[in-house]
Structure formats: structure tokens, C-alpha cells
Write a protein that binds this DNA or RNA. Structure first.
Lengths: 280, 280
DNA sequence: ATCGATCTGGAATATTTGTTCCACGTTGAC
DNA sequence: GTCAACGTGGAACAAATATTCCAGATCGAT
């Protein structure tokens, strides 16, 4: 009586459904495969649409949707749709909303925990900002400048230093020649003196700008070494002496600015440079 | 004939509706005020629910919802609901979805741009993971261990080093005594030899673990210096010699793991430690 | 090629859901 | 206190939406 092809119990949450679909995708009939693909590609559509509208844009019959749902153990299409909706509800909430949910759920957040969540929130916001702020062309130009360099000089102090030290680590693994400027005291200027126009510099500095970084970037620029920089304002001293520069404004929490956006940009730059070189 | 109380044309998007509601909230009849409050407080409910279910949880009649919608120029409840839904769609979209929107919107993403977005996505995911993964009690214990230390020894190599270098920067600004272990070659062990049980160590290491970091953490532990660590697995060599440890699994893109979650945790720890000390 | 099993499309049906309508309350002006 | 205007609840209605059903198509095994 019971159909063996249909799982007895429906997946409890969206992730479970997703894996179930992926697992059984192979041995699903043609139209159901079609629905499966559509569902995973357009989850929002399924959450909001009506059976009829979804069926139309997935090029199937409404009944096929019902069959699809039943194949995965639901009563009907509505049961399946519910999963897509609750997923949306949970996902949707902004970081602040999610925090509020956390607070309501468990005991009230301790001060420390709210600190952590504050920094996480700031990082999220930073990342959101940068996603739209970096133009692809600009990025490409920066990559091509740096990929063409024999040696890349990394200039960063204080708060920016962790970023350059990450780049140094990654460049090392990717076999890209670099010099980390500013680690050991004193020899920086000697190091910079070796740079030629065939090299390039990547300078990072955020307000309040370390005067040392700006000075070093200017030295490089004066010697015709192309400079690419990452800073937080068009009025930054770095902007004026750079062939190409990125403006990244990090969100802050408790007076401490995030580094996430800068870090993501730095990682992307690093990998893109290595990738470009590998091709040549 | 035409009712002056209802605006002729309905708000075009959610924000417009929101302001409209806020503006007219004062001179709205009792039940409609009730709906207005409910709508702004539970936008998700309105987006997903049916008129009946919403009416019930807002303690009004379904017809009131319709009247409410009509007061703001909509044909009926459905028109109003649409605004709540599209808002959700736009807000909700996951990072991947947003990327897809970006792709569709502008020209196709260049390879470099998609790299950047990939890293941004990985960072977002990492942050999402850590938000739920760090228990408040554990965090508190770690803070109290480190806040009680005279000097905090920061142990990190390679990929973890940017994190410790950020902490070093922040500790410096916050006037917390620390020693960054692992910068200059050779003298590390001598530095560690000066540590006493009144100090503490914070070690960071991710797979593949730098054997040096593990060794140094063990040395500290053997000398009864409390060790707090940040690592990515319960089987990490750091876990076994730590008084307290955090497991943070970073998402990756193109084989490069994010640092955002670790960085956020590190920042929170740092500030919490300074804050705790300030109180004493 | 034939048969059986399974899949598919589309119309018919049942259910849910939004909307309308009207009698009853409530409020405020005179 | 009366009246008019407006607000409210709830039931009746209409529209939409999901589901069921079945005849015909498709596919695979023999």
C-alpha cells in the first residue's frame, strides 16, 4: 500500500530537504528533476509564489509540484512550501534581529557575549558594504599592476599590519616574491631603496594614518614604483600618491573597527595576483 | 464620493509604507492603530501569514486588515502584503543569492570580482557559524583567565599570526601587558622561559598545525602557565594542553580559509579582557 | 514489438483565503 | 439626550489556490 519511493517522513528543515533532494536527484523522474532544480535555484520563488505561478515559471503542471512534495514525504505542496518559508524567515532577519532572537531564546546575553556579537555584527556590516563598493575594473587594474611587479612591497603599520602579514603568508605559499616592510625597525628605508619601477608597492593605512606608511608610500611613488593602496577615505594621504586605490570603510563596534572587509579584499587581491601570474 | 482619509495611491515600496504609517499613526482609529503597530513589529508575520492568521495574532478581524490596507490606498489586503513580501525577498537573499543578483544586474562578474565576492561570502558564512558556536560561559572563563594574567603571551604562526598581531596592536592601545611570541627568530624560547603561573598564554593554531606553536603551548602548560587557545578542531594539539579553548571552523573560498570569525572572536576577547581589568 | 509499470498533463474538485456587506457600537457635536 | 458620522465584528460570499483523479503518453524489460 505504502509507496516505497516516497520517504515516510518529510524533512524537518530546509537543509534536510536540500540534502534529500540532492541525494535522490539522480533517480527522480524527468519532471520531478526539473522541479528539484528549480526549487534549489529559486527558493524564494517557492516560498512566496502560488502553486500555479511556480508551476508556470518552472514549466510544469501544478500537479507535478504536489507530486514532487509527496515524493519527499509531504502531505502536499503546502507542507513543502512551509519549509521554504521558515527558512526565509530565519535567514531574512538582519544581524540585529538575529541577535534579538538569540537574546529571547537563551538567557539574556552576558556582557561578554554581546561584545562578541557586536564584533560579529560589525564584521557583517563591513562585508556588506564592501560587496558593492569595489568596482570590478578598479580591482582588475590593481591586480594587473601588482601581478606585473617583480617584487611586491607590503607597507602597513599598526592596525593595518595584520592584513599585510596575512598577505605575506599567502604570497609565501603562492610563491609570489614580496617584502614585508615595517617588521624590524630601522632597515625599512634600506629595503625600500632597493625597489625599482619594475616592482610595486601595496600600502594599507586607515585613519588616523600612520605617518610612516604615508611617507614610505610617497618615497615609492617618487621613485616611479607603482603604488596600490587600501585606505578609508579619498582624503587619505595614500590616495594621492597611488596609481590605484581602494576605499574601504569598516564598521565598528565599541570603538574598534572591524578588519573583515579589508581582509576579504586583501585575500581576493592576493589570490587574483597569483592567479594572473600563473597564467603568464 | 472619494474618501479623503485614504490616500489615492498606495505606497510603492515598504519604506514608503512605513513612513506613511508612522506619519498617520496618530489619527488612525483604534483597531487600525493596533494593526499598524503589529505590522511594523512583525513584518515577517504579515509577509507570510494569511489574513486570518495575521488577524488572529494581532487580535483583530480579517476585515480590519482589509480596511487597514484600503486606508493606505491599496485595493485590499493582498496589495499591502505584496510590499512586505518583496521587502523580504530583497532583504533575505543570502550572500550567494545577492551575488547572483549582482551578476544579473551589471555585466557578468569578471573572474576577479567573483573572487572578491567569494571571499566575502566565505567571511559571512564564518561569522554566521561562530555566532552560535561560542558559548558565553566558555568565553567568560577564557576572559577571566587572561584578565588575571600579569603578562599575556601570544603564540601564533603563519596563518594565525595576523590575528595575534592584531591583538598585540589592540593590547598596546588598551595598556594590557603582552608578549608577541614568534616574530623574531631564536629568542622565542627565552621569552617563554620568563613566563610564570601568574601569566597566561593565548595560542592560535589551525590545521595543519604549526608544530612550533603546539610545542610552545605545551611548554607553557608544563610550567603551569594557564593556556587559552583558539583552534579548529577538538583533536588539535592545542586543545589538550589548554585550560580553555575555542573551536572555530572558518569557511573557505578557493582553498583559502577566511579569518573573519577568528578575528571577531579575538577582538571580542581582547576588549573583554581590557574591560575586566579596568574594573578591578 | 508488446506489455506492464510509471510518469505526465489537464480538467474537476475541495479547500483555503480574501473580500464585501450590513447590523451593531461608539464617539463627539450640538 | 439625540443624531450623525464613523468604527467594528462577524457572517456570507467570491475568488484564488491546492489537491485529486484519470486518461493518455512514455519508458524499460522481456
Amino acid at each position: 500500500m505504502s509507496d516505497v519511493a516516497t520517504s515516510a517522513q518529510p524533512p524537518r528543515d530546509f537543509e534536510a530537504l536540500r540534502t534529500a533532494i540532492l541525494e535522490r536527484r539522480q533517480d527522480l523522474p524527468k519532471r520531478l528533476t526539473q522541479v528539484a532544480a528549480y526549487a534549489l535555484d529559486n527558493p524564494d520563488e517557492i516560498a512566496f509564489g502560488t502553486a500555479a505561478s511556480i508551476a508556470m515559471s518552472a514549466n510544469v503542471q501544478p500537479s507535478t509540484l504536489v507530486r514532487f512534495a509527496q515524493h519527499f514525504g509531504f502531505d502536499g505542496f503546502s507542507g513543502l512550501q512551509l519549509l521554504f518559508r521558515t527558512r526565509l524567515r530565519e535567514r531574512n532577519s538582519s544581524y540585529e534581529d538575529r541577535l534579538r532572537q538569540l537574546e529571547q531564546g537563551g538567557a539574556a546575553l552576558t556582557e561578554s557575549a554581546s561584545l562578541l556579537h557586536g564584533f560579529i555584527g560589525a564584521a557583517h556590516r563591513s562585508l556588506d558594504t564592501i560587496a558593492g563598493a569595489v568596482e570590478a575594473e578598479r580591482f582588475e587594474r590593481a591586480v594587473s599592476i601588482l601581478a606585473g611587479a617583480e617584487t611586491i612591497y607590503l607597507i602597513a603599520k599598526r592596525r593595518s599590519y595584520p592584513i599585510s602579514s596575512y598577505m605575506a603568508y599567502a604570497f609565501g605559499k603562492l610563491k609570489v616574491r614580496f617584502q614585508l616592510v615595517g617588521t624590524s625597525a630601522g632597515i625599512d628605508d634600506d629595503m625600500l631603496a632597493m625597489a625599482t619601477p619594475q616592482d610595486a608597492a601595496f600600502a594599507i593605512s586607515f585613519s588616523p594614518y600612520a605617518s610612516e606608511s604615508a611617507r614610505q608610500a610617497r618615497i615609492m611613488a617618487a621613485r616611479d614604483v607603482p603604488v596600490v593602496s587600501l585606505t578609508d577615505s579619498a582624503f587619505s594621504p595614500l590616495a594621492e600618491c597611488s596609481r590605484e586605490w581602494f576605499e574601504v570603510v569598516e564598521a565598528d563596534h565599541a570603538g574598534f573597527r572591524s578588519l573583515s572587509a579589508s581582509m576579504a579584499l586583501a585575500m581576493a587581491l592576493t589570490v587574483a595576483i597569483a592567479e594572473t601570474r600563473r597564467r603568464k
